[in-house]
Write a protein that binds this DNA or RNA. Structure first.
Lengths: 69, 69
DNA sequence: ACAAAAAGTCAAATATAACTTACATATAAT
DNA sequence: ATTATATGTAAGTTATATTTGACTTTTTGT
């Protein structure tokens, strides 16, 4: 799986740390880190929560990039 | 969780059964059924695979509706 | 009315996302 | 030099998505 740089840059644009996103979405920092680094395959509900925190949509952050396994 | 009627109608528009989608995405019929009925929270990769089969995007099928747990 | 396909559901097993704890590195500030 | 914050990673555990197999109910076609 490839890295999610769209998520990483959306997070940078909001000046939030991985821990900030983790706290806002109710998961751990490691989970956010793993998603950004493409280490696993998060649930749709978590993706939606991340999108809401970052003011983006699913297509903005999760479409077309992470298609490769 | 609420039912995913967008997915159900996109599937109807393609005249595909739940089993057809299951086979095309590499999961079981029960998994597709559970997603349509809102019984659980699929992975983003499975959502993307379903979107591709149905010719839709993540926003088309999974945004704004399934936000309610 | 009958048969077949599609859909709904359930229990038990397996795979894996996500958690916990922990340690290491890098950067920035004091 | 030291403290604090942010990030990357890993082993072991827990929660849950997904599978398997089976059975029932609906729908559709003949």
């Amino acid at each position: 799986m490839s890295k999610n740089l769209k998520m990483k840059s959306a997070r940078a644009a909001k000046d939030m740390s991985q821990k900030d996103i983790a706290d806002a979405t109710g998961v751990t920092r490691q989970t956010i880190n793993a998603i950004e680094n493409g280490d696993y395959n998060p649930s749709i509900n978590l993706c939606i929560a991340i999108c809401k925190v970052l003011g983006k949509t699913l297509n903005d952050l999760f479409w077309e990039d992470d298609v490769n396994e």
